[in-house]
Write a protein that binds this DNA or RNA. Structure first.
Length: 674
DNA sequence: GAAAAGTCATTTGA
DNA sequence: CTCAAATGACTTTT
């Protein structure tokens, strides 16, 4: 379009200069249409001791485990029977649980305590003296169950989010911690050539320390889990209490209906690969489980038992069933993404003869009306990515005018604003003095690519021994500065230690928000730790006092962000590693100041939130002046397609108070100003 | 060389 | 205690 060419920095006088009202309100209405009895039983969080202390758990050398605290977020959401435990119980102080004898207290916040088989850890089974690791050759020795003896008791408490009554915050905190732990394990496994499955290791630790949400099973929504939430591992569904079985597709429980009791399905995982009619995302045909023998090709008819029976009973009881849909992750060769798609009900069931000649159960599920879109958004954005012209309400196909390798779409589905005020799109930071005059950065001598665990890699050493990114390119840990390989390095551009310097990798769109001016969101799913974009613009010299900058709403400064951002690293603490946590008091801002008023990229459209999904991270690669690093943005947790990207502009302090604005982020932990 | 199929090590909860 | 399961990472085959 010609218009695109003219837009920037062309003369768009008719465009209103939009004062960025940079703050945020929830972009979707809260998920409604889900009739849970929340009013009668307010959410409660109960801090209770973990169940049975695992016998193999370090014995006497870890007395601290006695005060192990459970961290349960339980909201009593389903009241079909009167079996529910109820009455809000105040959070019990941790100190009340000094010994492990109080284990039975767990039942108090379990909605279905009667049906629970105590949450006791069957974990760590007894393990033969530990030397079974390399047993005699030839004989296939069973791998000993790992014992997480480095678990640090009491550290779990650091998780408690600022507002422990908000299930969403708890789910996010648990989820974020799982990911941090998983990434760290991945990093360690690579250097030590240990066995894989960091997802299982992270999951096992979370389970063992009982850092999980929605511990009791329930029919209906899982508090704190929202439609559209995305996951990369089945273990994630497990620890946030959405779907308990680690592999199985059907989660079910025994529930009371008046006087009788029935086994009903509560959640299913539809792992894709099935005949989904594209036009109708509201129905789903699900196959029953079973029929495939473990290691032989022999197959048999499915039986009406367990999950299949529960589905059958659910059809008659007409209870709501959570549905998680699996899709192939377009970003990974063999990856899968799970999307929570809300509540469904079973309409009918039948049996079918499969191509193997055995009988298989089929269930047709219909999505409950009135819920926000989940998987439908995913399908829609996938279509846009394949063919951007299918995206409607577009003002500009590419706001970057070709500067970015992937076009940045400008859309307005809200009002008649034609676009943001004039600025020059740039994907580079403009320094006042040439980069070449700055201290050069030392490079590594690695051939081809840098590898984890290579003691000779100067870049690995510079980063503290580990490469900062995992093999899939996600940042493992937030740190004062990340050193990527640069011009001085011998490695190629394929080196995994070159992530943020390669520029954006996603289809972004700048969109009109309802009340906060323009905002930024993305068509692709973004996984936690993934690189998003750089804050580009003009570097303002710290020595030059700019009296004018109160007028500049596009200034980036390294102001101390809120707890959520600071806690991103949390997780390694759980396995006894030294904390990388930086408290607000210890936080040291950098002198760098960047203005994106006149020139910038997509990052200038990112709004503030006190409960953000993105954080900034200083990165170096082209010079050695650590006071003036690149400011790179990474995902705080997994971000579903079309979710607004926000970061924490920082706590208002003396220096920034003249620019403080009222925050509209709507988060329960909103600080009011930013 | 990419995609599909096979192999293996694991978990949770019934 | 045993078992099943719409797992996930990796290797081998087509």
């Amino acid at each position: 379009m010609d218009r695109a060419r003219n837009f920037i920095p062309g003369p768009n006088q008719e465009l209103l200069d939009i004062k960025p009202i940079r703050s945020l309100a929830p972009m979707f209405p809260a998920p409604m249409g889900v009739n849970i009895n929340q009013s009668s039983t307010p959410p409660l969080v109960c801090v209770t001791p973990v169940g049975q202390f695992p016998t193999g758990f370090g014995g006497g050398n870890l007395p601290a485990f006695g005060s192990f605290a459970t961290f349960n977020a339980t909201v009593n959401g389903f009241s079909q029977a009167g079996t529910s435990a109820n009455g809000a119980i105040d959070a019990t102080p941790i100190s009340a649980y000094k010994t492990r004898s109080g284990a039975t207290a767990l039942g108090d916040d379990e909605p279905y305590s009667g049906n629970q088989t105590s949450a006791s850890g069957r974990k760590a089974k007894k393990r033969s003296a530990g030397l079974s690791a390399d047993s005699s050759d030839g004989v296939k020795a069973k791998r000993p169950k790992p014992v997480y003896k480095n678990l640090v008791a009491g550290k779990e408490l650091a998780f408690l989010p600022a507002s422990p009554n908000n299930p969403r915050e708890i789910v996010e905190a648990v989820h974020m911690t799982f990911e941090a732990l998983r990434r760290r394990h991945l990093q360690m496994d690579e250097t030590q050539d240990a066995s894989r499955r960091a997802d299982l290791k992270a999951g096992a630790i979370m389970m063992a320390s009982n850092i999980r949400a929605n511990v009791g099973k329930r029919v209906g929504t899982a508090p704190g889990v929202e439609i559209g939430d995305i996951f990369y591992f089945r273990m994630e569904l497990c620890i946030i209490g959405l779907h308990a079985p680690s592999m199985g597709g059907i989660d079910y429980m025994s529930a009371k209906f008046g006087a009788d009791e029935d086994s009903v399905a509560i959640c299913i995982v539809a792992a894709g690969g099935y005949e989904n009619e594209d036009d109708d995302t509201d129905t789903l045909v699900y196959s029953g489980s079973g029929g495939n023998s473990r290691n032989t090709e022999e197959r048999h008819d499915q039986k009406l038992e367990r999950g299949n029976l529960a589905l059958e009973r659910s059809m008659h009881r007409k209870n709501e069933i959570r549905v998680v849909r699996g899709f192939k992750d377009p970003a990974m060769v063999a990856g899968k993404i799970y999307i929570y798609d809300g509540l469904y009900k079973i309409q009918e069931s039948w049996t079918e003869r499969t191509k193997f000649g055995v009988n298989c159960f089929k269930y047709r599920l219909q999505r409950e009306p009135g819920q926000r879109d989940g998987a439908a958004i995913w399908k829609m954005t996938q279509r846009w990515i394949q063919d951007p012209s299918t995206r409607g309400r577009v003002i500009l196909r590419d706001l970057s005018s070709g500067t970015e390798s992937i076009p940045v779409c400008l859309v307005n589905e809200v009002d008649h604003e034609k676009g943001p005020g004039q600025f020059t799109y740039t994907n580079q930071v403009k320094y006042l003095r040439p980069v070449s005059s700055m201290t050069p950065m030392q490079g590594c001598g690695c051939q081809s690519v840098c590898l984890p665990g290579d003691a000779n890699c100067a870049c690995g050493q510079h980063n503290g021994g580990d490469l900062p990114y995992s093999s899939s390119g996600v940042l493992v840990c937030r740190k004062p500065i990340v050193y990527e390989c640069g011009e001085a390095c011998h490695c190629t551009l394929n080196c995994r230690n070159r992530v943020s310097q390669k520029g954006i990798r996603f289809h972004f769109e700048v969109f009109r928000t309802a009340n906060r001016g323009w905002g930024l969101r993305c068509w692709e799913p973004i996984r936690a730790g993934a690189f998003i974009c750089e804050y580009t613009g003009e570097v303002i010299d710290e020595l030059k006092v700019n009296l004018d900058d109160s007028e500049d709403d596009y200034i980036f400064q390294t102001v101390c962000p809120g707890e959520k951002t600071l806690k991103w690293n949390f997780g390694p603490e759980l396995i006894g590693e030294q904390s990388t946590y930086v408290s607000a008091e210890e936080f040291q801002p950098l002198p760098i100041k960047i203005s994106a008023k006149k020139m910038g990229n997509v990052s200038r459209f990112m709004n503030h939130s006190c409960s953000p999904n993105v954080f900034w991270q200083p990165v170096q690669y082209n010079h050695g002046d650590d006071k003036h690093p690149h400011i790179m943005f990474f995902a705080l947790n997994h971000i579903a397609p079309m979710t607004e990207l926000t970061y924490d502009y920082g706590v208002v302090g003396e220096e920034t108070s003249h620019r403080a604005k009222t925050c509209l982020c709507g988060s329960l932990t909103c600080r009011g100003l930013f």
